[in-house]
């Protein structure tokens, strides 16, 4: 049931492999999120799928059809750019209807489809404005409308929310997810924000240096990271990593524990509280262990220790993630 398949896709810029032998199958109708640190090749991979870049190696199948060398317009994909890339001298109406007009669709039908999409995205009052006269969130919706109106085989989103403020970003996230589910259209969504990835994805693909580190459902990645990198990347605040004798007692080169899996205990590692973050619903307590290793633990509000307090903490044994010296998770 995969709609887009990548086989050994590679893209080099000079000697640098921005995308390195990627094999990936993207499920029909789902939201697949590409996530990874800056410069890991997410945008490049998305542009390869869109046809804006040509791969140096590998094949791309869309609906079982080889589209490796097909022109972007013929792939039936719609992309939403980070900068929105709206046409500045066209009205919102013309922006949304541009692809349909180029496709030679009749004027009344274009109008009908544009109106329908505008209503869906709450853009009806702005149809005759130009992009310069819109707020950031409205521009964003126009960019989405331009993609939706074409009824493409799949949407490609490249960090579409990164120019919005935090509150609007949270709202747009949910709205975008609902829209995609309503339409049932396959979507690939690029972000470097792991929280965004967790909330939006049916499936997350974690990238590093042009390679896939792990792919799976959000909670799968959260609870069973395949390696040290994914363990550190997914989840906020990040996992606590400990090496040395403490890891050795668990039979691993390194162990990782989420802040919520650490508890204050009578027996355990002793440390000193340095900072307490009060977030309201929960608090994060930063400790330094005797040998200087930092540790964060989550605590319920009202139960936080005071700054400078000495205490002992212990992990929930079943929740300790163990890694070998190669960084891979141990069974």
């Amino acid at each position: 049931m995969s709609q887009i398949e990548l086989h050994g896709i590679t893209k080099r810029f000079g000697d640098h492999r921005a995308v390195d032998r990627i094999d990936l199958a993207i499920a029909r109708g789902g939201m697949t999120v590409f996530v990874g640190p800056s410069g890991c090749g997410k945008t490049t991979l998305l542009r390869l799928i869109a046809g804006l870049e040509d791969p140096d190696e590998g094949r791309l199948l869309i609906d079982d059809e080889d589209m490796t060398g097909t022109a972007p317009a013929q792939r039936g994909l719609a992309m939403v750019f980070q900068s929105y890339a709206l046409y500045p001298h066209m009205t919102v109406r013309a922006n949304i209807g541009f692809a349909l007009k180029l496709a030679g669709m009749a004027r009344p039908e274009i109008d009908a489809r544009v109106e329908r999409v505008a209503a869906m995205l709450h853009l009806t009052p702005y149809l005759d404005r130009r992009p310069a006269a819109l707020s950031g969130g409205q521009r964003q919706r126009v960019a989405i409308g331009r993609a939706v109106v074409r009824e493409p085989r799949a949407f490609l989103f490249d960090e579409p929310l990164s120019n919005l403020d935090a509150a609007l970003r949270g709202r747009m996230r949910v709205e975008l997810r609902r829209l995609q589910q309503e339409l049932g259209t396959t979507a690939i969504y690029v972000t470097h924000d792991q929280a965004e990835a967790m909330t939006m994805a049916d499936r997350i693909v974690v990238f590093r240096d042009g390679r896939i580190e792990q792919a799976g459902r959000p909670l799968e990645l959260y609870h069973r990271p395949a390696n040290r990198f994914v363990a550190g990347f997914i989840g906020s605040p990040a996992m606590n990593f400990l090496a040395g004798p403490r890891a050795a007692t668990f039979g691993a080169a390194e162990i990782a524990i989420r802040p919520e899996d650490l508890t204050v205990a009578a027996e355990g590692w002793s440390g000193t509280v340095t900072v307490v973050e009060h977030l309201g619903a929960e608090s994060y307590v930063h400790l330094v262990l005797e040998d200087g290793a930092p540790l964060v633990l989550r605590s319920r509000p009202g139960e936080e220790p005071a700054n400078g307090a000495k205490l002992r903490v212990a992990p929930v044994a079943a929740k300790v993630h163990r890694f070998g010296s190669d960084g891979l998770a141990l069974g």
Partner: peptide
């Protein structure tokens, strides 16, 4: 001229003529 605008037009199916007419010339006004 913003290269992403050109790319967006490319994905929207604009050939060289359409690109000139709807993107480049208005930009040069």
């Amino acid at each position: 001229l913003d290269s992403e605008q050109r790319e967006a037009a490319q994905l929207d199916g604009a050939g060289p003529i359409a690109m000139l007419r709807y993107l480049t010339l208005p930009h040069l006004a």
